[in-house]
Design a protein around this nucleic acid. Structure first.
Lengths: 341, 341
DNA sequence: TTGATTTACGAAAACGGTTTCGTGTTAATA
DNA sequence: TATTAACACGAAACCGTTTTCGTAAATCAA
């Protein structure tokens, strides 16, 4: 078990000082040609790599970014994460990821853990419980310490920071309008209890579409599933209501509802249309394939990482603050066979 | 922007030495009651938290574990990761994740990046390219440095380390046997080019099942899709071969093939049966729902993390080596409507 | 030859902790 | 009362870097 080579080792071996070694490896002008070459050759030969931890301690930055998301087995978050990882990696940043599991406590613990020097900045989507409790002290703590933070998808106005969001309202409006124009009149909304900003906004778009097309909003056609994935609520809902279209805030709700109604003999899209959020594998491989809104997670992740890293590196030159941006990613309605044109 | 409190700050404020503060916060017996209480009260009041980086540098361990997987938008890997994260977190470890994107170079870069002090140990599933190239020098490098490593799912015999695997051969055998017993005779295998240990083993189980039940292996019924997801190859294959059952090494292949054949008028499971690996959302929500082998990613991840952390903490007491374990997780055949009983 | 620069390098502080060891006080013992 | 042990704390080394600053030797100008 070879121990890792340190500057001190090289210095001893070559009979020079540690500072000379350090400077040589950085190709400093201060050091003479011969010495530099000697040191560099030695370092290459024995495959010297600086100790990240020591560098981090000295330089006060870690080149790590912390990501906290509510769930990892989840198509959308996973694509966002891919976007973050790809962009961050290309700039030499590593990603430390924690999952809050939709729990407030875990979110708090994780952010405190990471905030103590492990990372240079955070990218987060709020946990369900956090949005429910509306308690963001752990986040103000973070921002007050000057740690850059960008929130995506599940955000809050309470925290002043960079944000990246989907145009939830607009795209929900677009989706519902599409179905209305195709002649649908009894359009159901499958959503979650609305302490989520995304649920609220999508519902807003849904209502607006109905209203602008002269359709009354029937509150009975809005199903708000409780937080803990009580997908079972869908069965009685779709069984007991006469509907000819469904907008669901995720693909699971949509596919599940579609399956139920198909088994009851309804034809998709002849008798009923479906549109879901999250353009994942489920949508692609359903039968019929599901029309759905692509949230462009990769793009969101990339943008979030870009904003974060800009802010991190701005801090070095003591940039100005308070000019937080919130960027909107435009969703795309991917039309498949679960709707008619 | 409040700067973080350090031991030095507390020491100065309280008129004691840094060592006294440090020891007080660890509740050392060396320090008198009053002093300890004073320090602890002050620390709590101003919410002192030690700097992780400094602690890591001093203690030579980071409480971080590095995970490198080929893909993150992938049900199985994602469940494994969840298992790792949950277990690691419960023991105070954080998880740094890198995705190799099935690329050898990225895998190498990422492992080298993390190996330089950022983590205490690795959990990895090999990238496709790595298994293809059969070049594992970056891993021997890691193990030679005494960094614990556990490989899961995509492993190699070339590296001596802890491993956790699915009983691929046995469970494939079981799956195929089930279909044979239900009267299927023309069973196709949808797999990948076999530089993957998993593909090899699953094929082994497939062949063994046929042979043990007195069925000849028809090489034409084995489709090896090239590495870069050339799922398009499935269409001509299932169109041009007469088959009554399919075993696929992942759910996407299975669902895709099922969709094609259904659109050609075949009834599932009356005319043809399907079994896939990866018991994900796709399997659950397909119509009909897909019988599939659950790989118990959560359990694999938890076990991998357990083995890794045991080895990490063993190192502290200079434990013995060379007694590497490879644990086998038993897959479970989840029977749904794509097969008959 | 002398003084001023430049060159090439080393000493040491710093990052923020942990830990060993030494020491001045006080309490216990002979 | 003198000796020793226990107690409570501080000084300093250390982890592996980076970086500032000081300085001896070499080079230059006068």
């Amino acid at each position: 078990m070879r121990r890792k080579l340190t500057l001190k080792d090289i210095a001893r071996e070559l009979g020079v000082s540690i500072s000379t070694v350090s400077k040589s490896l950085k190709n400093s002008e201060e050091i003479g040609r011969d010495t530099k070459e000697k040191v560099q050759a030695f370092a290459k030969l024995y495959n010297y790599k600086p100790n990240n931890i020591a560098v981090s301690l000295k330089n006060k930055h870690t080149k790590n970014i912390g990501v906290i998301i509510p769930d990892i087995v989840h198509y959308f978050f996973t694509t966002v994460f891919r976007g973050i990882e790809k962009y961050a990696n290309s700039l030499g940043y590593n990603v430390i990821i924690c999952v809050s599991d939709e729990s407030f406590d875990k979110e708090v613990i994780n952010t405190e853990l990471l905030a103590n020097g492990s990372i240079d900045g955070f990218i987060m989507a709020l946990s369900g419980e956090t949005q429910l409790k509306n308690d963001y002290r752990h986040l103000t703590e973070v921002t007050e310490q000057g740690i850059p933070l960008v929130l995506f998808d599940r955000v809050t106005d309470e925290i002043k920071c960079d944000k990246v969001l989907l145009n939830d309202t607009e795209i929900a409006f677009e989706a519902v309008s599409k179905m209305i124009k195709a002649g649908r009149k009894k359009i159901a909304l499958l959503t979650t209890e609305n302490f989520f900003n995304v649920s609220i906004n999508r519902e807003l778009g849904y209502r607006k579409a109905l209203e602008e097309h002269g359709l009354a909003v029937n509150e009975n056609l809005i199903l708000r599933l409780p937080f803990n994935e009580q997908i079972d609520g869908i069965y009685p809902f779709v069984s007991n209501n006469e509907i000819d279209a469904v907008l669901a805030v995720n693909e699971i709700f949509a596919i599940h509802a579609m399956g139920i109604l198909q088994s009851k003999g309804m034809k998709v899209p002849e008798d009923i249309s479906f549109i879901g959020f999250t353009n994942g594998l489920l949508s692609k491989y359903a039968s019929p394939p599901l029309t759905s809104v692509a949230q462009h997670g990769d793009r969101m992740g990339e943008l979030a990482a870009k904003m974060l890293i800009e802010r991190i590196e701005m801090n070095f030159v003591e940039g100005k603050e308070e000019d937080f941006r919130t960027e909107i990613i435009k969703g795309t309605l991917i039309e498949r066979e679960s709707t008619v044109n």
